[in-house]
Simulated assay, not measured.
Amino acid sequence: MKISEVFRNTFIGHLFIFLDINIIGVDILPDALGWFIIGGAFVEAEKVTNPQMAKRLAIMIGVLSLPFTLLSVQQMIQTSIYVELLHTTMLVVSVVFYYFFFSVCLDIAKLYKQESNVRQMKYIFLPMQIINLLSLAILIHLPLVYRVVGVAFTLVGLIVFIMFIVFLWQMKNRTSGPIFDEEI
């Protein structure tokens, strides 16, 4: 798989996760499918550190997010303790996934001497992980506070996620060309 294809598939997968388009109560862009697309992006990336771990974690999150795709809102409300436990587990696994994902991105950038990409990744990775870890800590220890500050976390998370999507698109464009045509 070419480097630009890895970033294209990761970009498309994150769009599935980010966009919730419901038609007659059915999400036509399910999060689980997005995570499976992201996992598939790392299938053949062998020249970089830990692509298989990123792939496994993305697939694990996809499996964990299947109930959110299959259950109605009413069913999720009735099983709220399980939904919160599942959501917390997904947050923990996603923190670890993004660590491995960014390590793969750093390896790609270093492999092709893309120093500006390395700096840009650090500016995105840190806020993204801080938001994930803070929301996880507050969700676990102070669930009532999480409901109150959840809107603020959502807005800040939205901004950082948009920055992340733009970064993926830029990496896809920066890694397409004859220099990057070899398989990774």
Score class of each variant (00 low, 15 high):
140 I>F: 14
25 G>H: 01
93 V>F: 11
92 V>K: 08
56 R>D: 13
152 A>Y: 03
112 Y>I: 02
36 F>Y: 03
89 T>E: 10
49 T>H: 13
62 G>E: 09
144 L>V: 15
57 L>H: 01
29 L>Q: 05
82 Y>N: 13
52 Q>Y: 06
74 Q>G: 06
83 V>S: 03
27 D>M: 06
137 A>F: 13
22 N>L: 07
153 F>A: 02
32 A>Q: 00
47 K>E: 15
76 M>R: 14
148 V>Y: 10
40 G>Y: 00
101 F>A: 04
141 H>A: 13
23 I>M: 04
94 S>L: 08
131 I>S: 09
109 A>F: 07
153 F>T: 09
132 N>E: 11
158 L>A: 10
42 F>C: 08
63 V>S: 03
132 N>F: 15
140 I>G: 10
79 T>A: 15
125 F>T: 06
91 L>W: 08
136 L>I: 04
34 G>I: 03
123 Y>W: 15
96 V>G: 06
110 K>V: 03
61 I>E: 00
103 S>A: 12
31 D>Q: 02
158 L>Y: 12
25 G>I: 04
122 K>T: 07
156 V>I: 15
40 G>K: 00
84 E>A: 08
94 S>W: 13
71 L>R: 01
140 I>Y: 11
60 M>I: 13
74 Q>T: 12
117 N>R: 08
98 Y>V: 07
84 E>I: 05
106 L>Y: 15
39 G>H: 09
142 L>S: 07
138 I>D: 09
53 M>L: 13
38 I>Y: 09
22 N>C: 05
121 M>V: 07
44 E>I: 08
150 G>Q: 01
100 F>T: 05
156 V>Y: 10
70 L>T: 00
63 V>T: 08
36 F>C: 02
48 V>C: 12
43 V>K: 13
109 A>T: 03
124 I>H: 07
28 I>P: 00
32 A>E: 07
113 K>Q: 14
31 D>V: 01
44 E>N: 14
157 G>D: 00
97 F>A: 01
113 K>L: 09
77 I>W: 04
150 G>L: 00
116 S>Q: 14
156 V>C: 11
55 K>Y: 05
29 L>S: 04
25 G>D: 00
105 C>W: 07
75 Q>G: 04
44 E>M: 11
130 I>S: 13
133 L>T: 14
